Lab assay of single mutants.
Amino acid sequence: MDVFMKGLSKAKEGVVAAAEKTKQGVAEAAGKTKEGVLYVGSKTKEGVVHGVATVAEKTKEQVTNVGGAVVTGVTAVAQKTVEGAGSIAAATGFVKKDQLGKNEEGAPQEGILEDMPVDPDNEAYEMPSEEGYQDYEPEA
């Protein structure tokens, strides 16, 4: 019985440690998101679009440190934060509304985080759909 109880105690310690790591990862992701939003706020009209992409990228980098179902929630929060940063930029006159959601080359930025393969159960990952990809044929 002692062996059984000791095993359960060790398992509990492992769960607590994993929860603490997840909590730490979420806190880091939130900190990076805040950094990115402050970065966007300090940019001029020309830099705002690039700044919004930076927020998304920093958040995406930190999301990889967070495991399990938390990833889905962090990704949703990050996307809403990026959308909010863009709205703030438009409201303050840093950028025109028609410039939001495009990178410096004018290509749409939507789907940055949505296409990231995420499995809350950590069982399997699927690649994003290939609808947006084109076949590449090298020139002879």
Rank of each mutant, 00 (worst) to 15 (best):
V118G: 11
Q62H: 06
I112E: 10
G68S: 11
G25E: 09
P108T: 08
K10T: 08
M116E: 06
A56N: 06
K60C: 07
E35A: 07
G47E: 03
D135F: 10
F94P: 06
A78R: 08
Y136R: 15
S42C: 09
N103P: 03
V118P: 05
A29C: 09
E110L: 01
G51C: 13
T22F: 03
N103L: 07
Y39M: 02
S87M: 10
G132F: 08
K10S: 03
V15F: 03
G93R: 08
E139T: 03
I88D: 04
M5T: 02
K6Y: 07
A91N: 07
N65V: 11
K43F: 00
K60H: 09
V52S: 04
N65G: 10
N103M: 11
A76H: 12
K97Q: 04
A11H: 01
Y39H: 06
T44R: 02
E46K: 13
A18C: 08
V77K: 04
K21V: 08
S87D: 08
E57A: 07
E104C: 00
N65K: 10
E83V: 00
Q134T: 13
T64I: 07
K96M: 15
A76L: 13
I112L: 12
K58C: 01
A90F: 05
K43W: 12
K34V: 12
E104G: 14
Q109S: 05
K21R: 04
G41D: 00
E139W: 10
V48T: 03
Y125W: 09
V48C: 08
A17E: 11
V15G: 03
T54I: 15
G68R: 15
A56C: 08
K21N: 02
T81N: 01
K21T: 06
E126G: 05
A85Q: 05
Q134G: 11
V52M: 01
L100K: 02
Y125L: 10
K80S: 01
T59S: 07
N122I: 08
P120I: 13
G67C: 07
A17T: 01
E137D: 07
T72E: 09
V82T: 04
N65C: 10
N122V: 12
V49H: 00
A17Q: 14
H50E: 04
V118I: 09
T59I: 15
D119K: 15
P120T: 03
K21E: 02
E83T: 13
N65I: 07
E126M: 07
N122M: 04
E61W: 02
L113M: 05
G41F: 13
E104F: 11
E123Q: 08
K45W: 15
M127F: 12
T33M: 15
K21S: 08
V48S: 02
Y133N: 13
N122H: 08
E83Q: 08
A78K: 09
T81F: 01
Y125M: 02
F4M: 06
G31Y: 11
T59G: 06
V55D: 01
V70Y: 06
G31C: 12
E139V: 08
Y136S: 14
N122T: 02
E137Q: 09
V66F: 14
S129C: 05
E105T: 12
G86N: 15
F4K: 00
V118K: 13
E130N: 08
A140M: 08
T75N: 13
Q99Y: 07
A27H: 12
E137A: 14
E110R: 04
Q62T: 07
V49M: 15
E13V: 07
F4W: 07
Y136T: 03
A107N: 11
K23I: 03
Y39F: 13
H50L: 15
T33I: 06
E13F: 09
G73A: 05
F4T: 00
E57T: 10
K43P: 00
V82I: 13
K102Q: 10
K32E: 00
K10R: 05
D2S: 05
V16N: 08
E28G: 09
N103E: 05
K97P: 12
T75M: 15
G73M: 01
K10F: 00
A27K: 15
G73H: 10
M116L: 01
V66S: 01
Q79V: 03
I88S: 05
A76P: 02
A29P: 00
K96F: 14
D119Q: 14
E131A: 02
G14Q: 14
V95T: 14
G132Q: 15
V74E: 02
G25N: 06
G93E: 06
A11K: 00
E104W: 12
P120R: 08
V52P: 01
G106M: 13
L38F: 12
P138M: 12
V37K: 01
A56H: 08
F94H: 07
K60R: 12
E110H: 05
E105C: 13
L100I: 09
A30P: 01
N65Q: 05
Y133L: 13
E139I: 12
Q99D: 14
T81C: 15
K43E: 00
A91C: 06
V71L: 14
D119T: 15
A85E: 04
P117S: 09
D98L: 12
G84A: 02
A140D: 11
P120C: 06
K6N: 07
G25K: 15
S87V: 04
K80V: 03
Y133M: 13
A30K: 07
V49K: 12
P108D: 10
V16C: 07
K34M: 15
V40W: 00
S129P: 09
Q99F: 08
G86L: 11
D135C: 12
N103G: 11
D135Y: 14
T44Q: 00
G47D: 03
G132W: 11
G41P: 00
V118S: 07
A53V: 14
K32F: 15
V63L: 13
V77A: 09
S42E: 09
G7Q: 10
T33H: 04
T64P: 05
D121N: 13
L113Y: 08
A124E: 12
E130A: 10
